[in-house]
């Protein structure tokens, strides 16, 4: 994919009140590659993901997207002006666990909204691109439906189309299948696999170990705000050296053995 972004995360720290949510986290997100963040709940994976587009504000360290620092004018300096932040966010897509579609708009309306309000496209052009994006996620027959009429899997695919239409160079997925009924998980993962093969830079917080094993280029394991280890999926998932990763994966194996 032309213009896929890279992200450098250096010594990032973040507190939620007293709670030290991210501790000196270092991570490189490579352009056109899929990085999966795994780990127990409360380990800081979602927080780290949300710091990449500055929905969560990190306090120290640096996060650079294609070399450009996000959130601050300089490392440790003043906050970045809202306009600059919004411009950077335009090229970063984000998909949420709870879909977060706008319930008062149709599927098509959800996708055109950003194209019209943020990209400033005329309505007809926005609708043409929105239709393309919805077709890509297999929802050409649901364009006029409101979210309340769609299944969870369909809602999440609309949410993916909503970010795709903005032509992002980096996509962040925050547990995109965790709120779905098990039989609806596949349709969302399939769309994500397609994006991965097309060379989109993706960062995915997930509990889907199968997806991490087969689609990810690298897997990062986090625990208690620390990035414990990052490596190719096979090393992390099948050959972990760290006892914390072993313990975490054991709970999966126990749960799935029947």
């Amino acid at each position: 994919m032309p213009g896929a972004s890279s992200v450098e995360i250096r010594k990032v720290n973040k507190h939620h009140g007293q709670f030290h949510a991210l501790k000196d986290v270092d991570l490189d997100i490579l352009p056109g590659k899929v990085t999966c963040l795994i780990g127990p709940s409360g380990s800081g994976k979602s927080t780290l993901l949300r710091c990449i587009n500055f929905l969560d504000e990190y306090e120290s360290g640096e996060i650079r997207i294609d070399g450009q620092l996000i959130g601050y004018q300089s490392p440790g300096g003043a906050r970045m002006p809202g306009r600059t932040l919004r411009e950077i966010r335009r090229s970063i897509g984000m998909v949420f666990q709870q879909f977060n579609l706008w319930p008062h708009m149709t599927a098509l309306g959800n996708v055109t909204e950003g194209l019209i309000r943020v990209r400033g496209l005329p309505k007809t052009e926005a609708e043409r691109r929105a239709r393309e994006a919805l077709e890509k996620v297999g929802l050409s027959d649901k364009m006029a439906s409101h979210p309340s009429r769609l299944s969870g899997g369909q809602q999440q695919r609309v949410a993916i189309a909503r970010t795709l239409a903005m032509e992002p160079r980096l996509m962040l997925f925050d547990e995109p299948t965790s709120a779905l009924d098990p039989e609806l998980v596949g349709e969302v993962l399939n769309v994500m696999k397609t994006l991965a093969t097309e060379g989109m830079t993706m960062v995915v917080v997930t509990h889907e170990m199968g997806f991490a094993a087969h689609v990810a280029d690298q897997v990062a394991f986090m625990e208690k705000g620390e990035l414990v280890s990052v490596d190719v999926p096979d090393k992390i998932l099948h050959n972990p050296q760290d006892s914390r990763i072993k313990a975490f994966l054991r709970t999966y194996h126990e749960r799935n053995s029947f």
């Binding site: 587009n53 929905l55 809202g82 919004r86 411009e87 950077i88 966010r89 335009r90 970063i92 897509g93 984000m94 949420f96 709870q98 977060n100 579609l101 706008w102 319930p103 909204e113 950003g114 309000r117 943020v118 949410a159 909503r162 970010t163 903005m166």
Partner: peptide
């Protein structure tokens, strides 16, 4: 979350209020 979704695509606060 619905407001964050709008922020994440770069919508201005004024547009978020209105839309």
């Amino acid at each position: 979350g619905q407001i964050e979704a709008a922020r994440a695509i770069g919508m201005s606060e004024l547009s978020i209020i209105r839309r």
